[in-house]
Design a protein around this nucleic acid. Sequence first.
DNA 1: AAATTGAACAATTTGTTGATCATTCAGACT
DNA 2: AGTCTGAATGATCAACAAATTGTTCAATTT
Lengths: 205, 205
Amino acid sequence: MTDKTDTRTQILEAAVERIMHYGYAKTTMAEIAKDCGMSAGNIYRFFSSKIDIAEAMARKLNMEINQKNAALARGPGTAPDKMRAFHMSALQTTFTKLDSDAKILEVAEVLSNERPTFANEEMAQERVHLVEILEQGVSEGHFAPMDDPNFIAEMMQAATMKFRYPQLWSRLTLPKLERELVGVMDLLLAGLSVRIKVSEMMIAE
Amino acid sequence: MTDKTDTRTQILEAAVERIMHYGYAKTTMAEIAKDCGMSAGNIYRFFSSKIDIAEAMARKLNMEINQKNAALARGPGTAPDKMRAFHMSALQTTFTKLDSDAKILEVAEVLSNERPTFANEEMAQERVHLVEILEQGVSEGHFAPMDDPNFIAEMMQAATMKFRYPQLWSRLTLPKLERELVGVMDLLLAGLSVRIKVSEMMIAE
DNA sequence: AAATTGAACAATTTGTTGATCATTCAGACT
DNA sequence: AGTCTGAATGATCAACAAATTGTTCAATTT
């Protein structure tokens, strides 16, 4: 049992090593196998495809980010401050990753093509902590009470989408993006502070 | 003089016809020339490159949209309603275009690659009318006074970016996107209704 | 029996060749 | 003199062949 998980993590580690260095496409199953002292065929007893290895890789990385998010959500500070810090750190880590090793971007791209639902899972996971912050904000009186915190969390994600997609801002610098994000957060947090009347006028008109 | 502009528009119209039907890549300069009863070389007296034709095409289309935006901004209705209508119609036209003729998407993609600043011009143009709406909202008392309406307009664009990029929501349906946009607009408009304290805590920390 | 291999297969990528196309420009036409 | 053409050029694209690579599985090893 421990054997099995051991070889699995061994394969994963070898794959991470190679993929981070040479990229996903340029890493072959045969190479990963050789690094682990086994045949390519044998990898398939632990991962059912190459893309599955990339997914496992992303899952691991994501778990770490998620633990930081949990710590942030449950740590000290007011809800608005946490909300700012949450989105700002998301922007910064994405940007830094893009800068330092572009290989990770390739993995992200392949994954979003081959495993379309994966990104959704990530966002849902992130929302858990956004909801925590929102609820803290409500109970502290910084945010107006809300019917469906998860929906509001979705809206926060939608409104800050620009700061998540490297492809979109290729041309923009981090300071410029940070300033923009601050501006958007100012607006959104101001919005959260007042009771929202769900717009029925639009439907009626 | 009139001759010159005449042939120019003739070339442009022939190009639009073909590009809309066959797409940008599949339309050749020789074909456009033949449609106009001239040689391919001669087109270059009117457009300095093929991509310039696409740009002229986009400029024309954009001017029409812009006139509608101007009409909307100066027409009747409260500022918040106009703001909703503005973004909603942007989403709807983009989505419909994507659905009806995917050819236009090809042109958009080529343009954003070859003429990176073009999209910025479009957005700046759009902001003119967003600012008009914002200022109306302030004078009517729906929105809190703001130092820099153009900056706020930029933030509105940033926060609604998700609803502008077809590539991003490939999987989402129009009704779902509309509901999301309404949610985001609710938040943003609520934010506009209260005075925003520019966050200096972030810089200090 | 369980784990592993390596040959076989299918899919994908890469390399190559020929054609097509955007662009230029010297000269013909008006 | 100002328009326009069509051949020349270099870049890009399409199609096909060869090579590489992901994946499977019968045979082998442990």
